[in-house]
């Protein structure tokens, strides 16, 4: 199976985007995206787990029997998530306090099990690595986008507390757009679904326009 890198990346970021096309992993996509920084942090953590899980599964894909593959995948992913969880707790403690529970929940993020099952268990190490990266990138973009829109509408800021995630040199990202507070609803769960719905509609619109043009 020879899939070019370009196809893989295009697939992961746009055509087959985890959130905007496959519509899996919606739990973190809705729950943590109250700000752009949270979305970015969650996306990056998930990407890290996804890449390593993909590579590991691609490595061991020929020695595990099909009957027990799901438990093996789950154990692998769970170990990885535990490692990421501890790393974040140690080095990005502020972000960890925000994302806290949801880091542990990366284990049950269907996006990861989905890619491992659908792609890494049938492909070599290198394509699996690229696929994990591309899918993770698409996931991160989607989450950051949702987070930014909700943050902008809900609290009038962009990338609040970004310096805690990326270091003090990224403090310039933190923008306060308006002082009016904003619509509380966008920060609450319904806001996530509304924004996600409009993004899905927007992507479909772009796709259909592209096809007919």
């Amino acid at each position: 199976m020879s899939t070019s890198i370009k196809t893989l990346v295009k697939d992961g970021v746009w055509d087959n985007n985890v959130v905007l096309a496959q519509m899996i992993g919606l739990c973190p996509a809705a729950a943590v995206t109250t700000s752009g920084t949270n979305g970015l942090g969650m996306g990056l953590a998930t990407t890290a787990v996804l890449v390593i899980a993909n590579v590991l599964v691609a490595l061991v894909r020929n020695i595990i029997s099909p009957q027990v593959r799901i438990p093996v995948f789950v154990v692998l992913i769970a170990s990885l998530v535990t490692v990421v969880d501890m790393l974040l707790n140690a080095w990005l403690h502020e972000l960890y306090k925000v994302l806290g529970l949801f880091i542990a929940l990366i284990v049950v993020n269907c996006a990861i099990l989905g890619r491992v099952e659908a792609f890494a268990s049938k492909n070599g190490v290198w394509p699996a690595f690229v696929d994990g990266l591309a899918m993770g990138l698409g996931f991160t973009i989607a989450l950051t986008l949702i987070g930014l829109i909700r943050e902008f509408l809900g609290s009038g800021t962009l990338f609040a507390q970004a310096s805690q995630l990326l270091g003090a040199s990224f403090a310039f990202l933190e923008i306060r757009v308006h002082e009016n507070g904003g619509a509380l609803l966008m920060i609450l769960p319904p806001g996530a679904f509304a924004v996600l719905g409009f993004l899905l509609a927007g992507k479909r619109l772009l796709d259909t326009r592209g096809n007919t043009a």
Partner: peptide, 8 residues
């Protein structure tokens, strides 16, 4: 309801 929740 959306307005009430957003702008109490």
């Amino acid at each position: 309801v959306a307005l009430l929740v957003s702008f109490p």
